[in-house]
Design a binder for these strands. Sequence first.
DNA 1: TACTTGACACGAACACCGTTCGCCACTAAA
DNA 2: TTTAGTGGCGAACGGTGTTCGTGTCAAGTA
Lengths: 255, 255
Amino acid sequence: MRSANSDDDLPEVPLPPWRKARKSSQPRPQLSRELIVDTGLRVLDAEGLDALSMRRVAQELGTGPASLYAHVSAKEELLELIYDRVLGEVRLPEYDPSRWLTLLRQCALELHRVIVGHADVARAALASIPTGPNALRLSEFMFGLLVDAGMPPRDASLAFDRIILYVCADAFEGSLHYPRMKALGHTRLSEYFHMYVSQIEEYFTSLPPDRFPHLSEHARVLVADGGEARFRYGLDLLFDGLAARMPAGGDRPGS
Amino acid sequence: MRSANSDDDLPEVPLPPWRKARKSSQPRPQLSRELIVDTGLRVLDAEGLDALSMRRVAQELGTGPASLYAHVSAKEELLELIYDRVLGEVRLPEYDPSRWLTLLRQCALELHRVIVGHADVARAALASIPTGPNALRLSEFMFGLLVDAGMPPRDASLAFDRIILYVCADAFEGSLHYPRMKALGHTRLSEYFHMYVSQIEEYFTSLPPDRFPHLSEHARVLVADGGEARFRYGLDLLFDGLAARMPAGGDRPGS
DNA sequence: TACTTGACACGAACACCGTTCGCCACTAAA
DNA sequence: TTTAGTGGCGAACGGTGTTCGTGTCAAGTA
């Protein structure tokens, strides 16, 4: 595999018998679903989703791409498995329906944190309908919280779905900058963002004020807040709406 | 190009001089950005984003993929142009800040309608930072509405951003079913959805009730509502939160 | 102990993809 | 009429996901 010797057709030497021993001393790579998912996640964390190809994972495992298909039906399945493994890192608080709003908010923030922490796994998150064990665990927790707090199951289903969508969508949008940054050759995230924000602001400022009065005037604030503030603002909007819909109201002081 | 005559290497006849006239009567295919964007959108509408390759567009235009790069720097740019062309279909209501909530909601619904109407253009929508003329037109309208209604520009910026994200994210999520449906060989959308919903419901029902009491009990309602109801529910959540934040409150009777 | 069986590993290939290079035909200016 | 230059485009490069057929090893059976 590592070249070195010439692997031509004609055997230069009648291959000594102990060659067989060498091969069996290197037992079997023991491929398995878990090992493949582990490796895939490692590649994704280190180099991003674009670098996560079947060939790349196979290479990391010292084999060819065909070997993976014995344990994983397709790349899509591999991505779903990786996503569910990531969801395993989500730590759930103690279950207490009387504090449903606080806990639900905590879940959303935690989910967001975990997803954002794994490069651009969000791109895989939005694309898959998650049915893995860790996704179920999280779903049961959040959906149950809403139901047990007194929300009609149908509303709870919708609300839960919208929260997850929002969290994943925000993480996804943020992850789009990741490949861009690499393409521009930047290695420092702050440096990239500074450049990016300046460009957008400059563009908005340069717009004709007669056709785009608000955009050109407020160019600065349009790019002022970074990802985390934007995320929290939208989350607050959603949860305020939710609290107003819950029969018993919210659980935090002041609402 | 249209076959018909045999375009072999050897000329069957010493090609008469008036052949030259024929060629110049068919001047040049007159490739242009607009023509390429038109064709791309047509392919996308007819066969989905997965089928939209540079080769496919070129083939539709009766040429090779290399020809496109004279007018479009990369596929990503083509997608952005297509998306902005789609945004051109968004019809804006009459500007009236005193009815900001109604109009903003109308914009969101209209944008959603237009995006969903173009197969899975949503996948391109979320992936690009829209700076085309039609995107600016829409941004100026919605952002201006919030500012002129009395919202501090910084909040207006955040709110506007979140609304767009939500609309696009929902359309995106819905568009994911599109390739799946094709992969399963279904041609009727309703038929596919019926099968899909049944499967999910069955799966949730079959979950162990001791570990997933809420999911297994409420399996039916978890899949009850289709895309449109889910979308409106989330939009209402957002707008309720927004109205509560606007200094002058909402504009609709009852809020 | 010898043989069979079956599952896994994997090289090679297929059909695509986005993109670039370099040649060609052609138009417009000189 | 010559020349310069531009846009169209065939061919190729280096990648992708996936499949087929073969090889090889470990365990079960006689």
